[in-house]
Design a binder for these strands. Sequence first.
RNA 1: GGGCCCGUAGCUCAGCGGUUAGAGCAGGGGACUCAUAAUCCCUUGGUCGCAGGUUCGAAUCCUGCCGGGCCUACCA
Length: 686
Amino acid sequence: MNNRRLLVTSALPYANGHIHIGHLVEYIQTDIWVRFQKLAGQRCVYICADDTHGTAIMIRARQEGISEEELIAKMQQAHVADFAGFDIEFDHYGSTHSEETREVCIEIWSALRKAGLVEEREVVQLYDTQAGTFLADRFVKGTCPNPACHSPNQYGDSCDKCGLHYNPTDLIDPVSTLSGSKPEIRKADHLFVNIEKLHGFLEEWTQGGGHLQPEVANYLKGHFLCEPLHDWDVSRPAPYFGFEIPDSPGNYWYVWFDAPIGYIGSTKQWCQRYGEDFHRWWRSAETEIHHFIGKDITYFHTLFWPAMLKTGNFSLPKKVHIHGFLTVNGEKMSKSKGTFIRAATYLEHLDPSYLRYYYASKLSSGVDDIDLNFDDFINKVNSDLVGKVVNIASRTARFLERSGLSVMYPEDGGLFEEAVRDGKAIAEAYDSGDFSRAMRIIMAAADRANRYIEEHRPWEMAKQREGEASAARQVQDVCTVGLNLFRQIAIYLAPVLPRLARLTSELLDDPILRWDQAQRPLVGSRVRKFQHMMQRVDPKRVEAMVTASAEPVDFDSTPETTAATDDDAAVRAEPIAGTINFEDFAKVDLRVARVLAAEDVAGAQKLLKLTLSLGGENQRTVFAGIKGVYQPHDLVGRLVICVANLAPRKMKFGLSEGMIVAAGGPGSECYLLSPDLGAKPGQRVH
RNA sequence: GGGCCCGUAGCUCAGCGGUUAGAGCAGGGGACUCAUAAUCCCUUGGUCGCAGGUUCGAAUCCUGCCGGGCCUACCA
């Protein structure tokens, strides 16, 4: 396993949005893996870049009134800053909008042509004459073509009301979301890659060689490779922000064609910068290529990408590491709930080490989703990192400020050796991507260290009369053991917590640079004055971060949303009730009703007597506690909502056969609900 | 509609065919006071989503169902 050459990539973030905590799962995961490999002595290069092309970028630049180049430059700057804030250390961070990427695109394209894999076909699409562009499905809205549905305001691919799938050209009254104008149907020639011709190769590559996690290989086999592969549409007609296809003027490569090529383009830039031989990295069996991606882009990285590399005569990935998605508190990230947290927002409130450790403690080599649960997050970080790990240094280093570490490593009951043996298992876990296993082993070592200190009670010996050399030496020995156990742990955690490794290096005046430093105890060296290495997580800061994230500060919000300025007084006064299922809800029969008559009830302080019509002969007498808020003559004729199947209740003034619904707290304001225009008495509310 | 993944103690997860199912955190009791109310010892707590099947033996394999997450859509 020694002396490997590794070229590692994370998926290229799209230049249309900011980095958020969901993205960070992948970059932190990759960074930990890379740092581990480097620490272990491998030659390892971490390459990434911004993904900059496509319609979305073009549109966004127009909206902001700047050029695409300005937009992507601005975004790249923001991305780089976010990554740096989380200690994600790329060897090179480039852009797909580069000459190097263009060169490689041309190279692979020529190879595809030469291999006879490119075909031209006509595609019918909607075209926005005002914006001067073809419209992707999501840029068209109209009425659902299903005669039984006809829901308005549906996207160009399917109806979210009836579920029908159709072509954007089938929409009734289609409207471009870009200009609001009515698009026209136009034809254009597109270029397709016939990857079915590489079916045999893809079958072999995906199913063997350990290039993919077993569940991924299985998934591809069952769903793509069991039948002919579809041609891949890789061109888009002008206008389009991207690279124009040299032998097909007016057509551009689709963003997903050049995005992965950005891995190679960015490596090329790195090679030029450091005088490396490009061919040794991308066209040589001596280099292992490792891609880290999310499961949503499996398809591109495990079928198209290997097909392109193979045809272009580049090295194929040794492994594509696929991770799941992030949920927050068990749910998909939500802008309104404040769980859609941008990297920059996180950094304003919390230490990046917390998130790095938390993700590490949850990541396995599988494709499972991981959940960020804030209570768990606070507990885990405080208890594992501050209570256990940092605590070891905190309770021993102070005793060694004067004496330094013992000159000979003392007898420790085999603890140091035990942790040396752990190092092997931890290294294997890191290498295989099973970080949560590594964290578990490390925390067990931390528990042993704390127990050791507890049992040997250095503080008692320290209290003994001054001048007792033997007692002083005992304190020194016990703390030398404790601090060495801590140092091992800091080395093992260095891929996850580079900051802690740096602080440990400073404390012991001995830089942590290599994994195998954990195999030999440090002796005789001085110990600097101890300072806190990590603060506990303050739950208030987490809360503040969520609150800050709930504000609609991002550029991505859809135009339909309104900035919410309402306060939460009502919800605080009366908290949301426990969850019910649909059946519970369905038991309540709410109906539209018209007020036929309304009268004061003699002797009653709050009640009005209402006669309601549910249409036809259906009439109800209802006593409602709204006297003083509504005048009887204002109610007659209006529509209200009533609970139609509520058990009748005998009241002092007569039988009430239902209830009308109103908003507002008890005894305070009261607002009757009424249906929108067009509702008829007797209609049920669903 | 199709698919992938998950469902084990209050919470987060490990175990993935073989002794009485484990850990951390939280809860309860005690000890200690060097340490960022940290640490140490003891302890409560589980029909391993449900129902069938395979097996000498199933949390672990198979089938179906239920619940959750996610992806995708004339492409699966």
